[in-house]
């Protein structure tokens, strides 16, 4: 493990916890895409099936369990506990346009044609685009609460740090996972526009709002 890997994981954890706490403290999931959170729950579920087949480390296992538990808790808060605050009218991204092509691609391009590996590859491809429902929702409403932008920032930062981790591991450990790197680049690119707005607006104390 290197510093980029660890800070990537912690950034990912921060994002998940920020979102969970935001919904819990404000008793509201306004401005949050429930569809996006369903996709992330699907991502964690399909990727971490190896919890049942292999043990890597206590750190690895506990982080996987925390990610899964938090993502399901978030989905529960949005669709059950605080359902009345869920803004379904603005959460209209067609997720089948992501899940179906990504499912097809994971059958075609993977490291090994086995159920577990295909599901894991599916999760990597899906994660790279899973933020689109949330970004789409922000573009529809034209604004985002500041705490939501912090969530998005840490979520985007995590994958950027993982890319640096991939470079590190290529040089110092001689391993390179092309699927993870390409998906990571796609994922990070999708955040670039948001990163720009976050740095130029939110960090200067302004609310993130898009021109009409």
């Amino acid at each position: 493990m290197n510093i980029f890997w660890l800070t990537g994981d912690l950034s990912h954890l921060a994002a998940i916890v920020i979102l969970l706490l935001k919904i819990w403290k404000t008793r509201s999931c306004a401005g949050i895409s429930g569809k996006g959170q369903l996709l992330f729950a699907l991502v964690f579920t399909t990727r971490y099936l190896d919890l049942l087949t292999s043990f890597i480390s206590l750190y690895n296992t506990s982080m996987k369990l925390i990610y899964i538990a938090c993502s399901y808790a978030t989905v529960y808060l949005i669709y059950m506990k605080f359902k009345a605050t869920y803004d379904g009218n603005h959460d209209t991204f067609r997720v089948e346009f992501l899940v179906v092509p990504v499912g097809g691609l994971s059958f075609l391009i993977n490291h090994d044609f086995s159920p577990l590996e295909i599901l894991c590859t599916f999760s990597i491809y899906l994660e790279s685009v899973a933020i689109l429902p949330q970004l789409f929702m922000i573009s529809k409403t034209g604004e985002a609460e500041t705490i939501t932008t912090h969530y998005l920032f840490f979520l985007g930062l995590y994958r950027a740090l993982y890319l640096v981790n991939s470079i590190w591991r290529f040089y110092f450990e001689g391993c390179f996972d092309l699927i993870a790197v390409v998906a990571g680049v796609v994922q990070t690119i999708l955040y670039c526009d948001f990163f720009y707005l976050y740095i130029t607006k939110v960090l200067k104390g302004k609310k993130l709002s898009l021109p009409a």
């Binding site: 890597i56 490291h111 090994d112 894991c120 450990e173 001689g174 391993c175």
Partner: peptide, 10 residues
């Protein structure tokens, strides 16, 4: 290096 199919990253 980790063996192929060994998903040590999250």
């Amino acid at each position: 290096p980790p063996a192929e199919g060994d998903h040590d990253e999250l």
